Simulated scan of single mutants.
Amino acid sequence: MSLRYAVLTLLDIEPGSGYDLKRRFERSISHFWSASHQQMYRELHKLHAEGLLDCTEQAQEGKPDKKIYRLTESGGSALREWVQRPAPAQKIREPFLLQLFAGHHLTRGQARDAVRRHLDEHRELLQGYLEQNERVKQSDPQLQKRFWLAHQTLLLGIETEKAWLVWGERLLEELE
Rank of each mutant, 00 (worst) to 15 (best):
H37W: 12
Q38S: 13
Q39P: 04
M40E: 04
Y41E: 01
Y41S: 05
R42K: 13
R42M: 09
E43F: 00
L44S: 05
H45I: 10
K46H: 12
L47P: 12
H48Q: 14
E50W: 07
E50P: 09
G51H: 09
T56M: 08
T56W: 07
Q58E: 12
A59S: 14
A59P: 10
Q60H: 10
E61V: 12
E61L: 11
K63V: 01
K63W: 08
D65A: 15
D65E: 09
K66A: 05
K66N: 05
K67L: 06
K67C: 07
Y69R: 06
Y69G: 04
R70C: 08
R70V: 01
R70D: 02
L71E: 00
E73F: 09
S74A: 15
G75S: 05
A78K: 00
L79K: 07
R80I: 09
E81A: 14
E81S: 10
Q84P: 00
Q84K: 15
Q84G: 10
P86I: 00
P86H: 03
A87H: 13
Q90F: 09
K91N: 14
I92D: 12
R93S: 12
L100S: 03
L100Y: 02
L100A: 12
F101M: 14
F101Y: 12
G103M: 09
H105L: 11
R108Y: 01
Q110G: 13
Q110S: 13
A111N: 07
D113S: 15
D113P: 01
A114E: 11
A114G: 13
V115P: 02
V115Q: 02
R116H: 12
H118D: 06
D120V: 02
R123V: 01
R123W: 02
L125T: 04
L126N: 04
L126V: 07
Y129C: 07
Y129G: 01
Y129V: 01
E131P: 00
Q132D: 07
N133V: 01
V136Y: 07
V136C: 02
K137R: 11
P141V: 05
Q142T: 10
L143G: 05
L143W: 15
K145P: 00
K145E: 14
R146Q: 15
W148Q: 15
W148L: 15
